[in-house]
Design a protein around this nucleic acid. Structure first.
Length: 591
RNA sequence: GGCCCGGUAGCUCAGUUGAAUAGAGCAAUUGCCUUCUAAGCAAUAGGUCAUUGGUUUGAAUCCAAUCCGGGUCACCA
């Protein structure tokens, strides 16, 4: 049990037996003691004084002396300052934590209620390469899945490929018009970038044609509909839905190029999926459910035959679920896909890692599933994350301000290369080892940068200031790990040494931080929030660095002290490595 | 306009189940490499926690109003 939980239980029990009336852990607060006061953990007494009708000091003294008298193995001392009961935890307790855990490599409590959880993330469009926003999505989804697994849940990672629709047809039309049969192979380009260029070309051509039409006195709105390229794209969508063989062949060919490109990127960033759904297979799903909803009276039909749901009673608007021509809209297929997912995996929770611009969509989706009384409806959870913005605002494809994922990764690895060469610490590395290290550092910097911020919040990326390698960053933590490993290579922990040495302040401080790791993992899982892990691992590295600068390990004052510190090193390295692995970040042995 | 989210140091962010003098990193200034990796450590400086009012022994945190920023309200996905 964690010290925080143990304190809550112990204080609750003590209050109950001391004052002969029931207490719960909601009657008081347990905080870590601020560094300027004596003690390790603090009980805030104010909320107790009403119930006890005593002054904070009187209650604190009674509780403090009771705790010391009854739990001598847990508490060594206490003091009271202005309504705060500061407790010093017995040294033997901390030493025991260290002795029990220094060699532990896998952390994470098995939850009492183990669930089967689906995490859908990534969800790319197959007409252009991934950008920085997708990276935040991928890292977040992957890490959330890893954190849930660490807590004992069964996790199924899924991806929905948005592989059909008018946007896909646009790049296909442009390829037909302008490519002259060029392929990724013939041009030596990565497939997703190759196709993405034609998507951009379509936009350029469309703009040209629209401007020409406007000059002839046609309204902008009409011009966009009448532009020849747009008509081609629309016709192509009709042909695709009709299954016209040459269109289907082209579609398959171009999508396969994109997937080849995605595979390279996914492999590089470590994204993987247990199951991929394709919109081309799922876009017709949900139509039966529209029928079902109509007979159930959840949906209603307008005069033009379009089908709607009225959510005004829930404070929302009316929402269309089927077009007047009977075809499915985005919402329709999502209603269907949710049911399909449940039928295939019967997950307790189904998480959608999707940007917060779709908050409304998912609110409506869940409401509809619930009103239709569909299985798994209550388990739907939209893990909504904020956009990655540039100093100029949102990234916009049309304005060419999109930060490409592959470029970003390459740049990070380049910076890693430059820094590593400057420092010249790994000159004896083989070419493969060096390449591995640079990937580890570059990607580590990028992942940490995107994961350290609360997912819910939008975040800013300034391309002019490349991602830092100092301070609150991935490389800082990786570096700390490498330094620890360097010490442990010189002298590993021996399993025998009995620890009796008194703990110095920095040793204890580190141990207190290390002890909190399991609680952090649980909390990160409960909140679906990897940034808690990132912040925590950083605090471990920071605390360790203060400790290791002040105290010698290999030339410690005594053999026992050396063993104690080696154990602290071991435990710190294990926890840093474990925490970083939950973020999908590798830690090097040397750097 | 309706609904949703946000506003904390020059910049990027923690802290938001109420609690001691609001914390980090970057940028600035200053020390520390003959001994375990200086991608490090130690220190200085930097704040009307958007504004106003309220609840409370106690408010960055809860409530109300206002101002500012973003998102969303498509027979697009």
């Amino acid at each position: 049990m964690s010290i925080a939980a143990l304190l809550k239980d112990t204080v609750t029990e003590s209050l109950t037996s001391l004052y002969q009336q029931p207490f719960s852990d909601k009657d008081f607060q347990v905080n870590q003691t601020k560094p300027e006061f004596e003690g390790d953990y603090t009980i805030v007494l104010f909320s107790l004084i009403k119930k006890l009708k005593k002054s904070p000091d009187a209650a604190g003294n009674e509780l403090g002396s009771y705790l010391i008298a009854n739990y001598p193995h847990l508490f060594s001392d206490y003091n009271i300052i202005k309504g705060f009961l500061n407790l010093s935890i017995a040294e033997s307790y901390w030493l025991n934590v260290l002795e029990k855990n220094y060699a532990t490599t896998t952390y994470g409590q098995q939850s009492l209620k183990t669930q089967r959880v689906m995490v859908e993330y990534s969800s790319p469009n197959t007409n252009k390469p991934l950008h920085l926003g997708h990276l935040r999505n991928n890292f977040l989804g992957w890490s959330t899945a890893a954190i849930l697994k660490a807590n004992g849940h069964e996790v199924i990672k899924t991806c929905i490929a948005n592989d059909r629709g008018i946007h896909i047809c646009k790049s296909m039309v442009a390829w037909q018009l302008f490519a002259n049969g060029a392929t990724p192979e013939s041009t030596g380009m990565k497939g997703d970038h190759f196709v993405g260029d034609y998507y951009v070309l379509f936009g350029v051509e469309l703009k040209k044609q629209v401007e020409a039409l406007i000059e002839k006195g046609i309204s902008k709105e009409d011009a966009e509909k009448q532009a020849p390229v747009m008509q081609l794209a629309q016709q192509m969508l009709v042909d695709w839905e009709a299954g016209k063989p040459d269109i289907i062949d082209l579609w398959k060919k171009m999508n396969s190029w994109v997937y080849e490109g995605f595979d390279i990127t996914y492999k590089r960033i470590g994204s993987d999926f247990d199951k991929t759904y394709y919109e081309s297979n799922t876009y017709l799903l949900g139509k039966d459910l529209v029928e079902f909803g109509l007979t159930k009276g959840v949906f209603f039909q307008k005069d033009d035959n379009s089908v709607w749901i009225d959510l005004t009673a829930n404070g929302l608007d009316e929402k269309i679920v089927q077009r007047k021509d009977g075809t499915a809209v985005y919402m329709t297929q999502d209603i269907g896909l949710a049911v399909k997912k449940y039928e295939e995996y019967t997950c307790d929770t189904s998480i959608y890692v999707v940007g917060n611009e779709q908050d409304y969509h998912f609110k409506v989706l869940k409401l509809i599933e619930q009103k239709l009384d569909l299985p798994g409806a209550d388990g739907i959870f939209h893990l909504s994350y904020g956009m990655v913005e540039l100093p100029s605002g949102r990234m916009k494809t049309r304005e060419g301000t999109v930060v490409d994922a592959d470029d970003m990764i390459d740049e990070m690895v380049n910076v890693a290369k430059q820094k590593t060469e400057e420092l010249g610490k790994v000159k004896d590395f083989t070419e493969d080892e060096l390449k591995d290290l640079l990937d580890t550092i570059g990607l580590g910097a990028l992942k940490f940068f995107l994961l350290r911020v609360d997912p819910k919040k939008k975040m800013l990326f300034n391309p002019d200031e490349s991602i830092d390698f100092h301070g609150f960053t991935g490389p800082f933590i990786q570096y700390t790990h490498a330094r620890i490993k360097s010490i442990l290579r010189k002298e590993p922990v021996t399993p025998d040494g009995v620890l009796r040495e008194a703990l110095l302040p920095l040793e204890k401080e580190l141990l207190i931080v290390l002890e909190q790791y399991p609680v952090i993992i649980e909390q990160a899982a409960a909140e679906y929030n990897p940034s808690l892990i990132a912040n925590y691992v950083y605090s471990v590295a920071k605390t360790f660095n203060s400790f290791v600068t002040e105290h010698k390990i290999l030339t410690a004052e005594s053999a026992e002290k050396k063993q104690l510190r080696l154990r602290l090193c071991q435990m710190s390295a294990n926890i840093i490595s474990s925490g970083m692995s939950l973020l999908g970040i590798k830690v090097p042995e040397r750097m």
